[in-house]
Write a protein that binds this DNA or RNA. Structure first.
Lengths: 329, 329
DNA sequence: ATGAAAGCGCTAACAT
DNA sequence: ATGTTAGCGCTTTCAT
C-alpha cells in the first residue's frame, strides 16, 4: 500500500500538499492538485484512516450499547441512530451486553481508549451515575428518562405513559390489573411500581404479589406469561405489558387456547411495532426510530461542546382489540 | 490524558519497558513491572487504541454489511457473529445499505482504508465478483452460496431447500404454487426461479406470471401479499414464501378475513423464528445464529491466511399448521 | 533485562 | 501557494 509520501514523491510535491488536496484545503495550485490526484489514481492510493484518526484525535465512530440487537425494540432505536449517523459520515459499533454490567464496562473502556468518540446507551445495568463518571472521555447519551442527573437523554415520559396506560385499563372497567416489566427498566422500574401501587390504591384494589411480573422480553416469554396467568389463583383481568413482543406471545398463546383477549383478559402493550398492529394489540406507541435520531443529535451536540439536553418525546395510546372501553366513553 | 511517555517518566523506565508491561512480554523485572503498573494506576492511564492499531497495522474491527438491522433475519446472523467476535475481543461495525450498491461500496472503502480488518456480507446488491475484487484489502465472507467464486461463504443449500419446499407443497396436493422472494437473493433468485419452473413443469402445471412475486420482506408486505393474492384471477392454492415475516403478515391478514390457512391457501415459509413458531407457520428452519458464528470463524481463518472455505449448513422442514400433507404420507 | 531510536501514516503549525 | 518538521501515541528492532 502506497502512503502519502509515495504520492508526494510521484507528484513531485511535499506531503503537505498531498494532505491539502485530500482535505480540500484552499491554496493549492490547480496544476499541482491535478498532479497529486493522478498520482493517487496511478498508485491506487487510499488514505489510512487510522493514521488520520490518530493525528486528528478522534475516531469518527460511535458506540451503541444495548443488551441485544435481536429484539425489535433495540433494532428500532439503532435504525434511527444509523440513519442520522450515515448522514454525517459517522460509523458505529455495537456493544451487546446481555444486561451484563461487565460488558457495559468494556464499552466504557472503549470510550476511554478512544476506540469510539461517544456512547449511546439504549439500556443499562450499571447505574446512570456510575456510567456518567466516564463522561470526561466523551459524550454519553441515555435513551431513558434521567431526571436526576446532569446529562443528555431522550425518551418518552415513561411514568406518565405508564400512568395513562393504567388509567386506560381502569376506564375499561378493570381493577385487578397486573404489570409485566422487562429487565430494561432498571432504576425506572421502582418508579413504575410505585405509580402502579398508587393507582391500585385509588381503585381500592389490593395488589397480589403475583401481579408484578418481571423479566419478560420475548414472544416466548409472552407465551409463558399466558400459562402463568392461567394458573394464578387470584387471576388479574388485565395486564399492562411493557413490551409488545411479550404482548404478542401472550395473545397468540391465548388464541391457541381459544381464549378471547379483550374483555378479560385485556392486555395493553408498549412499543407498537408492525407486529402489534398486525395482531391488533392495544399499545402505547413509542417512537423508537425518532428516539434513535434524536439520541444521535444529542451526541453530535455534545461533541460540539454544547450543554446536556433532555428531550421528551410524545407517545400515544393506540386502542385496538385487546382492550375494550366501558360505557362507550 | 497521560501517554506512554508520561508513564515511563513517572516509573523511571523507558517507554519500551512500559510497552512490554502492557503487552505481557517476558523479560521485565518484577520490580519495574510493579513500578510501571502503579504509575499507570496513579495517572489513570489508558492506552490509546488508535495508536496501537496504527503501529500494529490492524483495527481489530470487523464490518458487517446488511440491508437493515431492523429485521429478524439479519439481526439473527449478527447475533451469531457478535457472540464469536466477543469471545476474541473483536469489535464490529454495522454497514446498513438498504440494498444500495453505493453504500456497499462505502463499506468496501472502509475495508481499503483499514477502518475494518474484514467484511461479512449478509446480503449484497453488488455482484459477488465485484465485491471480491476488494479482497486484497482484507478477508470478505458471504452468507449465501457462492459456488462459482473462489471465496469463503456459509449458508444453507438454498436451492436444495427451495426444491424440498416445493416438493413438500406438491406432496400436500398443490399444483398451483406461487413463490414469494425477498430482494435478498440477488444472483440466487435466478436459480430459484429456474428450480421453480422445473418443478412446475414436472407437475404439468403452467406458471402464471403473477405467481412469481418479488420484493417482499416485512410483516406489512405479507399483509399486502394476502390482499394481492385474494385479488388474483388465477389464484394459486399454495405460496412458498422465502421469509417468515412475510408469512406471518400473510397469515394474520388471512385470519382477519376469516380465511383458514392450511388446506388452501397453504403457505410455507423460510427462517423459522419465534414468530413462525408462535403462529404455527410451516417453515424451513435456517440456523441464522450458527451461520453468523461460522461466518466469523471463516473470517478469523482468512485473517490467519488460511485458504477460503465454503460451509453448507443443514436446514430442516418444520411442518406446522399452514401446510397439510395429503394421503397422510 | 533494558533502552534508544526508527518507524506506523497522517496532520498542522510555522516558515518562506 | 508550498515545504519543513514536529508531532499524534504506540510498537519493535537492534544494540547493550
Amino acid at each position: 500500500m502506497p502512503n502519502i509520501r509515495d504520492i508526494a514523491k510521484r507528484a513531485g510535491v511535499s506531503v503537505t500538499t498531498v494532505s491539502r488536496v485530500m482535505n480540500d484545503h484552499p491554496y493549492v495550485k490547480e496544476e499541482k492538485r491535478e498532479r497529486v490526484l493522478s498520482a493517487m489514481k496511478e498508485l491506487k492510493y487510499t488514505r489510512n484512516i487510522q493514521a488520520v484518526h490518530l493525528a486528528k484525535g478522534y475516531s469518527n465512530m460511535l458506540g451503541i450499547v444495548l443488551p441485544t440487537i435481536d429484539h425489535s425494540y433495540f433494532s428500532g432505536i439503532v435504525t434511527g441512530i444509523a440513519e442520522k449517523a450515515q448522514e454525517c459520515g459517522m460509523h458505529f459499533a455495537l456493544f451487546q451486553t446481555g444486561y451484563d454490567p461487565l460488558k457495559e464496562k468494556e464499552a466504557l473502556m472503549s470510550l476511554k481508549e478512544q476506540r469510539v468518540d461517544g456512547l449511546i446507551f439504549c439500556s443499562n445495568a450499571l447505574s446512570d451515575r456510575d456510567i456518567l463518571k466516564w463522561q470526561e472521555s466523551g459524550p454519553i447519551i441515555f435513551c431513558h428518562p434521567t431526571p436526576h442527573d446532569p446529562c443528555s437523554s431522550v425518551s418518552i415520559a415513561h411514568d406518565q405513559a405508564f400512568k395513562e396506560a393504567l388509567e386506560h385499563l381502569a376506564a375499561c372497567g378493570h381493577e385487578r390489573i397486573a404489570i409485566v416489566l422487562a429487565r430494561t427498566e432498571g432504576e425506572n422500574s421502582q418508579v413504575r411500581i410505585q405509580t402502579y401501587q398508587e393507582m391500585m390504591r385509588s381503585l381500592g384494589q389490593d395488589i397480589d404479589d403475583e401481579w408484578v411480573i418481571e423479566g419478560k422480553l420475548t414472544i416466548f416469554d409472552g407465551k409463558q406469561l399466558f400459562t402463568e396467568w392461567k394458573e394464578m389463583k387470584n387471576r388479574p383481568t388485565a395486564l399492562l405489558i411493557t413490551n409488545d413482543d411479550v404482548s404478542a406471545g401472550f395473545l397468540l398463546e391465548a388464541q391457541r387456547h381459544q381464549i378471547n383477549v379483550g374483555e378479560s383478559p385485556a392486555i395493553l402493550g408498549f412499543q407498537n411495532d408492525q407486529l402489534s398492529e398486525a395482531l391488533g394489540i392495544s399499545s402505547i406507541d413509542i417512537p423508537l426510530k425518532q428516539m434513535g435520531q434524536e439520541a444521535f443529535d444529542l451526541f453530535k451536540q455534545a461533541l460540539q461542546g454544547e450543554a446536556p439536553e433532555k428531550r421528551v418525546l410524545s407517545y400515544r395510546l393506540v386502542e385496538r382489540t385487546t382492550t375494550i372501553l366501558k360505557n362507550n366513553r
